[in-house]
Amino acid sequence: AFGFDLSPLLARAEELAHLAQQVVADRAVFRKAKEDLTICRRDVRKLISAALDEGLRGDWLAIEDVYIKLVARLPRTPSVADVTDILDEMELLKQEIVNRLESLSETEFTSTNDVQIEQHIQNSKSESPHEFEPRSEKEQGATPSATGRRISEPLKTFPLGIVLKACPQISDFGPGGGVTSWRDLMSAAVVVRSMLGISPSAYQDACEIMGPENAAVAVACILERANLINSAGGYMRDLTRRADRG
């Protein structure tokens, strides 16, 4: 009636609908890639800062330089391809850092164990065997904690599957980017402990009082709620004190 013929649009209605859906899908992919890159950048920055702050062995300044150059390569208005390319390289850098930290933590763990075993042997040679026996029936079965107080029963350890379901983020820091055993979880916890700013002494106290498995679970939980916790180190020490009180 007004000189407009909409029949060509009607004929291509299905095609145009598919194009519109593709635009929406592309935007979702772009948004997800940008979010993943932001999270990965944050994790890499925290890991490098933790390594530098704690004076860990390694050329961390060179790794930091690689990180800075990666960030600088991102254009002001990046495309999906730009973001995904940088994300791939950033994830590789993160995995390299995690591998280095795990290697350092295993070396430290082994040397610490050697010292503790040697000390235990020396103490065993010099002390009377009767000094380790309970002095009354009331003390039979009591488990001394690291601070001398006694906990009535050990802390319950939840199944690993439940822990990983509740705290999925910890898996990113496991060997090879995954956690399939308690050993993997404890290895990931050592890496995350540094990233969150929990001191080695605070984590060691937690391992002694809670047990290494539960200490690793606590780190996984803190990581999951890191945005709600002002001081991860203080929070860890508070949990350890509570565990020590039973």
Results as ranks from 00 to 15, higher is better:
Val190Tyr: 08
Lys94Gly: 09
Phe132Tyr: 14
Ser231Lys: 08
Lys125Pro: 02
Gly246Trp: 05
Leu164Phe: 09
Glu96Arg: 11
His120Glu: 10
Ala51Gln: 02
Arg150Pro: 03
Asn214Tyr: 13
Asp184Cys: 05
Lys165Met: 11
Glu64Gly: 12
Asp85Gln: 08
Glu91Pro: 03
Asp65Thr: 14
Ala146Tyr: 06
Ile121Arg: 12
Ser194Ala: 12
Arg41Asp: 15
Asp238Ile: 11
Ala13Pro: 01
Thr110Cys: 06
Met90His: 03
Leu164Asp: 04
Ile198Tyr: 01
Tyr67Asn: 05
Arg41Ser: 14
Met236Arg: 00
Pro144Arg: 13
Lys165Asn: 11
Met210Tyr: 10
Pro75Asn: 08
Ala220Asn: 07
Glu64Lys: 13
Ser105Lys: 02
Met186Arg: 06
Ser194Gly: 15
Arg73Gln: 06
Pro134Ile: 11
Glu153Tyr: 11
Ala13Gly: 01
Leu16Ile: 10
Gln119Thr: 09
Glu133His: 12
Tyr67Lys: 06
Met210Ser: 08
Thr107Ala: 07
Glu106Lys: 06
Ala146Asp: 08
Ser199Gly: 02
Asp238Leu: 15
Ala25Phe: 12
Phe132Asp: 11
Gln122Ile: 15
Trp60Gly: 01
Ala81Gln: 14
Thr107Glu: 12
Lys156Thr: 11
Phe2Val: 08
Thr240Ala: 07
Arg150Leu: 13
Ile229Leu: 03
Asp114Cys: 09
Ile229Pro: 00
Cys207Val: 05
Ile162Tyr: 05
Val163Cys: 09
Ile229Met: 04
Ser136Ala: 09
Val179Cys: 03
Leu10Glu: 06
Gln140Met: 13
Leu239Ser: 04
Ala166Lys: 13
Ile209Ser: 04
Ile209Lys: 01
Thr84Arg: 08
Ala232Asp: 01
Val23Cys: 04
Phe4Cys: 04
Thr38Pro: 00
Cys207Gln: 13
Ala17Ile: 05
Leu101His: 00
His130Leu: 10
Leu228Glu: 14
Glu118Arg: 12
Asn123Ile: 03
Met186Pro: 00
Lys156Leu: 06
Asn123Glu: 10
Thr143Phe: 12
Ser79Thr: 15
Arg150Glu: 12
Asn230Trp: 11
Phe109Asp: 11
Met90Glu: 03
Leu47Glu: 05
Thr180Ile: 05
Arg242Leu: 15
Glu102Arg: 07
Cys221Ile: 15
Gln122Trp: 05
Asn99Ala: 14
Ala13Tyr: 10
Arg149Val: 11
Glu102Trp: 03
Thr38Tyr: 10
Ala17Lys: 14
Glu108Val: 15
Arg193Thr: 10
Met236Leu: 10
Gly161Val: 14
Cys207Tyr: 02
Gly176Pro: 05
Lys94Leu: 07
Arg183His: 07
Ile121Asn: 06
Ile117Thr: 08
Leu52Pro: 04
Ala216Asp: 04
Arg57His: 11
Leu6Ala: 14
Tyr235Asn: 05
Asp82Met: 02
Ile170Val: 14
Thr180Glu: 13
Leu101Thr: 00
Pro168Phe: 05
Ile48Thr: 03
Val179Thr: 01
Ala81Met: 10
Lys34Leu: 13
Lys69Thr: 09
Ala17Glu: 15
Glu15His: 09
Glu139Cys: 03
Thr147Ile: 08
Leu74Phe: 01
Ser171Lys: 12
Thr240Ile: 08
Val217Glu: 04
Val192Asp: 03
Glu35Leu: 06
Gln116Leu: 15
Ala28Asn: 06
Ala72Gly: 03
Val44Trp: 04
Leu185Arg: 00
Gln204Thr: 11
Arg245Ile: 10
Ser49Asp: 14
Glu133Ala: 13
Glu127Gly: 06
Glu118Thr: 15
Ser128Gln: 07
